[in-house]
Design a protein around this nucleic acid. Structure first.
Length: 265
DNA sequence: ATGCCCCCGGTTCGGGGA
């Protein structure tokens, strides 16, 4: 039995107590963290070691940042998306590691892509998102063609279907939902991989994010933005997957709920 | 149409999130 959890924590230091509580309650083997919002040297590695988890980190000051926690040893860490020409400063949105059996784990924080509020004409962020997604798809495709077993997940910042959001008409022009973004995500899904969250939770209005604003949580104004994929060779071993919705109700928690999948291997 | 809320860095506000 192996359980993998993915969580956009919106600052790992501000949510440390909640992350530790999640580890204690769910006892996952692997945890993908996004938006840790801290550099490697200020990441609370010791707190996780005390709980029995090693951490591999791709940190960044203030923004972005991803990490993988693991009970078993991880090797061959890659901390940038291969084939993607990043700007300056580099944005920490990708981390990969392998276990000793050669299974590849990838944790991602896909760019949001929305223009800054003060300059709504600026489409450079959307362009960056599209290029990032294209490079990611090409990289996953290459790994699969090498015959790798791959488990990858995180915050994809895509509203894949209208039924993945409380009010789709309010988001038609949003970078979470515009056609080219959905197209890139469709291309990822067309590879021999399965989004276990979708597979085991096909019912509409399954959400993983509720905005801090607008009292979104209490009104269930949510979105499904997070996903956990496995390469199809692993699918026969996956027994369940879903959203740990109750965590969104915890005190001082993230605006995302964790998602999980369980493998019988 | 805008802001709500929340974090970070650095200072009492701006940037970023989605």
């Amino acid at each position: 039995m192996q359980q993998i959890i993915s969580w956009n924590v919106a600052s790992v230091r501000a949510r440390l107590d909640n992350v530790l509580k999640l580890l204690n309650e769910k006892n996952p083997d692997i945890v993908f963290l996004q938006e840790i919002k801290t550099t490697d040297d200020t990441f609370p590695s010791f707190d996780f070691l005390t709980e029995g988890y090693q951490a591999v980190i791709n940190g960044q000051k203030s923004y972005n940042g991803v990490a993988i926690l693991s009970k078993k040893p991880l090797v061959n860490v890659i901390d940038e998306l291969p084939g993607f020409q990043d700007g300056e400063p580099k944005q920490a949105r990708f981390i990969q590691a392998e276990d000793q059996e050669g299974t590849v784990y990838i944790c991602v924080y896909v760019p949001n892509g929305n223009a800054p509020e003060k300059n709504p004409q600026d489409t450079s962020k959307l362009q960056y998102k599209l290029e990032w997604m294209q490079a990611f798809n090409a990289y996953i495709d290459a790994l699969l063609k090498q015959g790798k077993s791959v488990i990858f997940g995180g915050d994809f910042n895509v509203i894949e279907r209208d039924t993945d959001v409380y009010n789709p008409d309010a988001y038609r022009t949003n970078a979470l939902m515009v056609a080219p973004v959905r197209q890139r995500f469709a291309e990822l899904n067309a590879l021999p991989v399965t989004n276990t969250i979708r597979h085991f939770n096909p019912e509409p209005h399954t959400y993983s994010f509720w905005d801090f604003q607008m009292m979104a949580w209490s009104k269930n104004w949510g979105m499904l933005l997070d996903a956990l994929f496995v390469s199809n060779n692993l699918m026969p071993t996956v027994t369940k997957a879903g959203v740990l919705k109750e965590v969104r109700g915890w005190d001082k928690t993230s605006d995302h709920a964790p998602i999980y999948c369980t493998l019988n291997k």
